[in-house]
Amino acid sequence: MRASLFITCYNDTLFPETGRAVVRLLERLGVELDFHPKQTCCGQMHANTGFRGEAFCQAKRFVRMYQDVVAVVIPSSSCVAMIRDQYPGLFEELGNEELRRQFASLLPRVYELSEFVVDQLGVDDVGAYFPHRVTYHASCHGLRGIHLGDRPARLMNKVRGMEQVPLANLDRCCGFGGTFSVKNGEVSSAMLAVKLQDLMATRAEFCTALDNSCLMHLGGAMHRQYAGMKTIHLAEILASTEAEPAEALL
């Protein structure tokens, strides 16, 4: 199966190891992966801050770039939610007929990583090995935005050597919220403090998720507080094997 990786702007810049893990994982599963070198951003940051015109520019760029691919795989649930929830309104308001048609045809081919692996590849055992105690943070966009459901659990349950610990108040937001984390930095931090209590109570070594944006927020606080827990994108756990452990462990 062929697929094109949309890595997202912040993974490209801040979390290249997640991208490398996605490549290892999908190629191991037999996917013929492409990467469009001119890709930048889906427009989420602009749209969520109220800059609709700017967001539309990114959205237009995205749709034109990917209109001919078999599948777009995105290792970020919030970016997928942006495309599914906000692109239709943006194109309705600002786009022309042709763009709307292109978008409508592209939309069913846009997948979040776990959707792609479980639904399109039909795999839940990806042959991963990760001998650590791990808790899963269901990001709001993954949980309520694009309804990932039990896909992450199905993938995690098949990871050998991994001890999973459930996180209390799984459906509660960690407080990141994009520019919310700086526009309302104090409230964001208060929400973060509450989430960290639940995370620390798991005594896990790693907190994982399908969205590095929450993890940047949580991991930043863990680092600041010498909390002794690290964050890791689920792609990196799924890519990890006995022969080639996750980069975070090196």
Binding site: I7, L14, P37, K183, G185, S189, L192, H217, G220, A221
Partner: peptide, 18 residues
């Protein structure tokens, strides 16, 4: 500074994914 009031940020890696 709004970010770093309560959170660290990992320095940017040398090699972006692309």
């Amino acid at each position: 500074g709004e970010w770093t009031q309560t959170r660290d940020l990992r320095g940017l890696p040398k090699q972006p994914f692309h």
